[in-house]
């Protein structure tokens, strides 16, 4: 039987999604504004994109941000996957409650607290603030998100597949690499992408833990935005939005494949 949306439901959806997307759309449209006054349309132009690429400080910040995001997302993916395995496959172990708490707490903890506490920690152990401190801080935050993503896949994982592999003579480690890992791979990739974007996006934690020569793009944008609207920031935002949209499309296709695979597993 086919169901159609009632008028009320359709209106809710239209208004809801307009609210979510209109601001982003306006931002992108006005990045092609010729006028320096961001909110007054002065004709179509791509000049701010040119100005953006000639702005060395902004380009430098983008490069730093990208490197931090790559590094921290890689570390976070490894640690987060291990944590997810520990939580789903290890039953009870010493301090499990504390461990679970530490995995979930950073996700709900206000960023100002996480940022401040890590900074105080780095100062206490005498580590100079900069590239590395931001990367370590981001790893700590984002690994928890990876854990949740991978864990939810592992929880719907059909354990009899592993049992079948072991029954056919594969030892546990080989079973993991030959059966488990390929099947949870899409969720690991999704976790990596999530960690990567979160790192790319973070302002608060990076602001606390930054040092000389480690100005990230959000820090740079924030300092410009505080001074008022800037067409260059619009252009930079439009590019970031483009990259993210592309990434999400890829990730969606991947999860779709993994969902199809999970269905084939018999879920």
């Amino acid at each position: 039987m086919t169901r159609r949306l009632s008028l009320f439901n359709l209106t809710s959806l239209i208004f809801g999604f307009a609210f979510l997307y209109l601001p982003i759309l306006l931002l992108v449209v006005y990045s092609f504004n010729a006028s320096r006054l961001v909110t007054v349309w002065g004709g179509f132009s791509t000049q701010w994109y040119g100005a953006l690429f000639r702005n060395e400080a902004l380009m430098e910040a983008a490069w730093v941000t990208l490197r931090i995001a790559l590094l921290s997302a890689t570390l976070a993916t490894v640690l987060g996957t291990l944590a997810a395995l520990a939580l789903t496959r290890y039953g009870r172990f010493f301090g499990r409650t504390l461990f679970t708490g530490m995995v979930y707490a950073p996700m709900v903890m206000p960023e100002v607290i996480t940022g401040l506490s890590l900074l105080l920690f780095f100062v206490a152990i005498g580590l100079d603030r900069g590239f590395w401190t931001i990367a370590l801080a981001h790893t700590t935050l984002t690994m928890c998100f990876v854990t949740v993503v991978v864990q939810s896949r592992l929880m719907t994982f059909d354990r009899s597949l592993e049992e079948a592999a072991m029954d056919l003579g594969a030892p546990p480690l080989r079973t993991f690499f030959a059966v488990t890992l390929p099947l949870i791979a899409p969720s690991i990739v999704a976790g990596f992408l999530l960690a990567f974007t979160l790192s790319l996006d973070d302002l608060v934690i990076a602001s606390f833990n930054t040092g000389p020569g480690a100005t990230t793009l959000p820090i740079k944008i924030y300092s410009q935005v505080r001074l008022g609207l800037s067409p260059e920031v619009n252009a930079a935002s439009a590019i970031l939005i483009g990259i993210v949209t592309l990434g999400v499309v890829v990730a969606t296709l991947l999860t779709k494949r993994s969902a199809a695979r999970a269905r084939r597993d018999g879920h």
């Binding site: 999604f17 979510l20 997307y21 601001p23 982003i24 306006l26 931002l27 006005y30 961001v38 909110t39 974007t197 790319l200 996006d201 302002l203 959000p218 944008i221 924030y222 935005v225 609207l229 920031v233 935002s237 970031l240 939005i241 993210v244 949209t245 990434g247 999400v248 969606t252």
Partner: peptide, 23 residues
Amino acid sequence: ALVILPFWTSFLIRIYAWIAILK
């Protein structure tokens, strides 16, 4: 996916977008 998508774009940028709207 459409609800999640904005969450993937920078938080800072999304807030910034409102300055131009609400001024």
